[in-house]
Design a protein around this nucleic acid. Structure first.
Length: 293
DNA sequence: CGGCATACCTGCAAGC
DNA sequence: TGCTTGCAGGTATGCC
């Protein structure tokens, strides 16, 4: 599930049940997720007050009162749920459907208000790491990370600059977290569809010889910004077994125009094409060959 | 360095 | 029904 909009949705769901509270106890139920937990993981977190729950690209970034920073990545199947001391669950966060099981509850943060933040991850592609506020920007996960696709850093000039001379397919360039950090397979497909651009086109074709943005580059810039904003507004998409804690599905999935719509009619006005799927650098790409050029 | 394939791990849907 | 196969939102690594 989690691309940037989903991680932002999780962050917003967790923040009210985390910020300002002390992490009284950490239950770490296995030695590793995708990677081993860092040394002294429990010791460095227990007793700390969690000052803020932030996000950078697809990472959750939790700041502690002593400068420790907990970095969490949800991988492909990671999710959080919140359980309150009353036994209630809270709406707003994503979690793996509990009718399945709690077998994959790997970490439980017991907070000072009696609530629990529970990390569940069937595939264990997620990971957690510790760094410090001072070392955050240069830690291995963030050191080479590109700009956020939200906010002012994303501009057609920026895109033209990093795409110039690149022979990689546009799709691959957009998935490259060193250029733009936070886009994944779904939203790249959606942004390219909105901009009417072929995923096969070279990234370099969006810049002129002098490195200025082409008209296509302008369209893509707007498309990326809008698709991410729309998805965050919708509370992230929800695929397969992901549901909100109140049981409702994330509903951006109903807005997919390309992703997962193989064989269905293209939704571009007056376009009579249909969505095709093919494999590009090992991943499924969905596009309309008729209106995406 | 760029670009690509592969590995990591589990669950689910589809096909037989 | 039950088996096998392929596919899934992620990143890291190694090979040319």
């Amino acid at each position: 599930m989690p691309e940037l909009p989903e991680v932002e949705t999780v962050r917003r769901g967790l923040a009210p049940h985390a910020e300002g509270l002390v992490i009284e106890r950490v239950e770490q139920r296995r030695p590793n997720l995708r990677f081993p937990f860092p040394d002294d993981f429990i010791k460095r977190l227990e007793g700390r007050r969690l000052v803020s729950m932030g996000r950078r690209a697809k990472y959750l970034v939790a700041d502690m009162d002593d400068g420790t920073v907990l970095i969490m990545h949800l991988g492909m199947s990671g999710s959080f749920r919140v359980e309150l001391s009353s036994g209630e669950e809270t709406p707003g966060t994503f979690h793996y459907d509990r009718s399945k099981s709690t077998t994959h509850d790997h970490v439980v943060f017991h907070m000072s208000n009696g609530g629990r933040l529970i990390y569940n991850d069937p595939r264990r592609f997620g990971f957690m790491d510790l760094t410090t506020r001072a070392g955050l920007a240069t830690c291995k996960h963030f050191e080479k990370m590109g700009i956020e696709p939200t906010g002012n850093a994303l501009s057609s000039d920026y895109l033209a600059g990093v795409f110039q001379h690149k022979k990689a397919p546009l799709k691959a360039a957009l998935l490259d977290q060193r250029l733009i950090a936070g886009l994944g397979n779904i939203y790249v497909c959606e942004a390219l569809w909105r901009a009417h651009l072929s995923p096969k086109r070279t990234a370099g074709s969006l810049a002129t010889k002098t490195g200025k943005p082409t008209e296509a580059c302008e369209r893509l810039t707007v498309a990326i910004r809008e698709v991410i904003a729309d998805a965050i507004r919708a509370g992230g998409s929800s695929l397969r077994d992901y549901v909100h804690t109140d049981g409702s599905l994330g509903y951006f999935q109903h807005s997919f125009a390309a992703y997962n719509r193989e064989g269905e009619p293209c939704r571009t006005n007056n376009c009579t094409g249909q969505i095709e799927r093919f494999t590009q650098s090992g991943r499924s790409t969905f596009h309309c060959p008729k209106c995406q050029r």
